[in-house]
Design a protein around this nucleic acid. Structure first.
Length: 154
DNA sequence: GCCAACGTTGGC
DNA sequence: GCCAACGTTGGC
């Protein structure tokens, strides 16, 4: 059984259109520097898991769906001193940060705004809606995933 | 182990 | 731009 996730990105930095436009519409999810989010990617994400692709900051909304196409491997941007996510404590011999690859599945015709998520019965317990939640990679339940997808069709 | 200070996230 | 909430760091 696939599991379900939500991954956050600032569209000005990396949007669902950016993902779709890449070769094979696939990208590593690099740059995550939060242990809890890392652990989800490193330990729990599996091939075929579905991902709600969330745009934060500008027009906060779920923009579409992606899927996991490569399981956890070291995030090489962490040992690149030129990279903005460089972490001197991470090395190729002892990597500290991990990522997965995701592939574009769908862009919603009607992105689902955060305010709609907040107002929708059945989504009360979404991690995203927890006060102060700042996780950039988080699990969602199958039911939450399907409710969000149906909102996108409405 | 505690906790103050700091930097960051992200909605509004 | 504001600011609440959070995670990390580092002194003690």
């Amino acid at each position: 059984m696939p599991k379900y996730w939500l991954m956050k990105t600032e569209p000005g930095c990396f949007s669902i259109d950016d993902l779709k436009a890449l070769p094979d519409s696939t990208s590593p999810w690099d740059g995550v520097r939060n242990y809890q989010a890392r652990n989800f990617m490193r330990d729990e994400m599996r091939m075929g898991d579905k991902v709600l692709f969330y745009h934060s900051v500008t027009d906060p909304s779920v923009a579409g769906v992606a899927e996991v196409v490569r399981e956890s491997y070291p995030d090489h941007t962490s040992w690149d001193p030129e990279d903005s996510h460089f972490d001197p404590k991470s090395t190729p011999e002892s990597p500290r940060w991990f990522m997965v690859d995701v592939r574009f599945v769908t862009k919603f015709d009607h992105p689902v705004p955060l305010r709609v998520l907040k107002a929708t019965p059945g989504l009360e317990n979404m991690e995203l809606l927890r006060k102060g939640s700042r996780l950039s990679v988080m699990p969602v339940t199958e039911e939450e995933f399907s409710i969000v997808c149906s909102l996108a069709e409405a």
